[in-house]
Nucleic acid binder design. Structure first.
Lengths: 349, 349
DNA sequence: CTGAAAGCGCTTACAG
DNA sequence: CTGAAAGCGCTTACAG
């Protein structure tokens, strides 16, 4: 029942540990015959190298992961970064080094590629990026793959690229959840409007699509009477547009607090459903202005993408699937701040 | 910038590594003067022993955690166990051994204590238990603490005991969330009844309390017209009692599927809010019979309590607080099965 | 292509 | 009370 070691295998085959090790890890300089013998025995005993010993003997070698990550809005991305850092702390003793480069709100492909090149030059073994959907970036990812540098996508996927895997939300589903909430809160009837970011984005479009789908399928008594856009960084007055509405769905994750304030100043009783938490949104939830906020669990996005990529690099563990999704959390007045991250022993608030 | 090691400290003080090690870990046989010198230097450099090397040198020593855990209902506890196992797999190479003993639906103190004694006899370094609130068990926990065996409570806390920490849900809050949902789904008016488990339990009582609190505070137009009990293991017919109701709150986590089926057969449009997921409850959510199920994230309960206790035993990391809460997840038709556990690389479905 | 040996940074049994 | 040394299970530079 004792755990089998390299030494055991070497003794049984009457060869040295070094040779066994080389055979197992496909290192050059092992005769095919020897290699075969070794692999047979490995399979027989289901031998797995001891992780701790491996890290121990590789002390000098660091595993470097480079990150190119959006910086704004902070109420969302700060939590992603907190997750990245939590994983970094957890894995520091196992040789992980994380280099995190932040970009602005607009993720221009050229800026991302520039940061990627810098990270590669500095010696990154793998990259985590928040991509934009451009051919240039896809080509870059393919090229990195050829160089042996795997890329994982965070928060936004790049489906037809050579990226290794994706960690992030299911945006369409989160739109469907919004539709579900709106339908229930209005008991199936009323006039609603949608407000979305002015930027053309896959994310915003998919959310709206999910929202409309659910209204069509299950709440025919709800009429969508207006579709507005709004900019994260500019003021906007949709005051007039709110008249006579029963509900508003705010589908981008950046303007919920603004919309809430507009409604508040209009002193109307519109049901407001939107995405992402921030201090302001939490306050508006408490006041009853925002009725529900749907969160995509930013902390977990950062935390798990690092753990998954590290497992891949350090122990050769391939993730269970290509797309791994964070939760779609429904936050109401009564479950703001419940549990969640605080339970993670590496989380530092 | 190089990481400082035991050897560095020893060289700087012109003493041996062994002595430095003994001083740092409060092991016997170090003169006060030497100890002081060492600790001063440790503080100066903020020296932290390398975790990997520590585990490496302690290979022979296992850290044994014993678990006394409820077994039923399986739709809930199976996920707790899955979480325990996930943590076990993650930490196996670091010396964790987990021995999990399961009890039945009713957690009799004497049965729990029996299992505790067996686990201690077998050499457990620490215990995780799902307690019942009896003086005997509290006394047992105090006694274990005196023996140097820390106890963590899972899912159900024992507040005035000597337990080290608690991981589990905030039951009162989850009742409040239920009240919030009921109020919103009924738009603030209607007749509702509550159904709870027939067992006297802190958990059930607190949930009902939270539910009533929110109705009182925020939804005066909702009238509670009936309070029923129901047994997890017995049939029950509340058919008549459902007449004329707009909503039902099912506060125990075990009978939601049953209540749902009763409502289904009555073909009525009662809003049904309850706790915990199971295959049947998921089916009822899809059919629209159950309107919302509130989950307390059983997987995380199992996963994190093991990680936290292991961190305490292996590296001396004390958890950030005494009570660590898992999430209060709101599950509707549209966010069944979204993300969550699958993202954990050690989760095996 | 293969082996013997040193080393990663701790811990501990043994000797003094 | 203190030191010198062996050992945990891998990896790799070096020698053959």
């Amino acid at each position: 029942m004792k755990k089998i070691t390299l030494d055991d295998l070497a003794k049984e085959l009457n060869i040295s540990k070094g040779t066994v090790d080389r055979a197992i890890h496909n290192r050059p300089g092992v005769s095919p015959r020897t290699k075969e013998k070794v692999l047979k025995l490995v399979a027989k005993y289901n031998y797995k190298p001891d992780k701790v010993a491996r890290v121990m003997s590789l002390k000098a070698k660091k595993i470097k992961i480079g990150v190119v990550c959006q910086a704004e809005p902070g109420f969302f991305w700060d939590h992603v970064i907190a997750g990245l850092r939590a994983a970094q702390r957890e894995l520091a003793d196992f040789g992980l080094e994380l280099n995190c480069q932040r970009t602005g709100y607009k993720r221009e492909a050229h800026a991302i590629i520039e940061k990627i090149d810098a990270l590669v030059a500095e010696g990154s073994d793998a990259l985590i990026i928040v991509p934009t959907d451009t051919p240039k970036l896809k080509e870059k990812i393919a090229q990195l793959k050829r160089q042996g540098i795997p890329v994982a996508t965070l928060n936004d996927d790049l489906v037809n690229s050579q990226r290794l895997f994706y960690v992030g939300p299911q945006v369409r589903k989160s739109g469907r959840v919004a539709g579900d909430l709106m339908g229930r809160f209005l008991r199936g009837r009323g006039r609603v409007a949608t407000i979305t970011g002015s930027v053309q984005s896959f994310e915003y479009r998919e959310r709206l699509r999910g929202f409309h789908e659910v209204l069509c399928e299950r709440y025919p008594g709800i009429e969508v009477v207006g579709q507005h856009t709004m900019d994260y960084s500019q003021d906007s007055n949709l005051f007039e547009a709110f008249k006579g509405l029963d509900g508003i769905y705010n589908s981008d994750g950046a303007t919920l607090a603004k919309v809430g304030e507009l409604i508040e100043s209009a002193a109307s009783h519109i049901v407001l459903v939107g995405h992402e938490l921030s201090e302001q949104v939490e306050a508006l939830l408490r006041e009853g202005i925002v009725d529900a906020a749907i969160s995509q669990d930013p902390f977990s996005q950062g935390y798990f993408i690092v753990k998954l990529l590290f497992n891949y690099l350090a122990w050769g563990v391939t993730p269970p699937c290509e797309q791994m999704n964070t939760r779609v959390d429904i936050i109401l007045k009564e479950n703001i701040n419940l549990g969640d991250q605080i339970i993670n022993p590496y989380y530092i608030p």
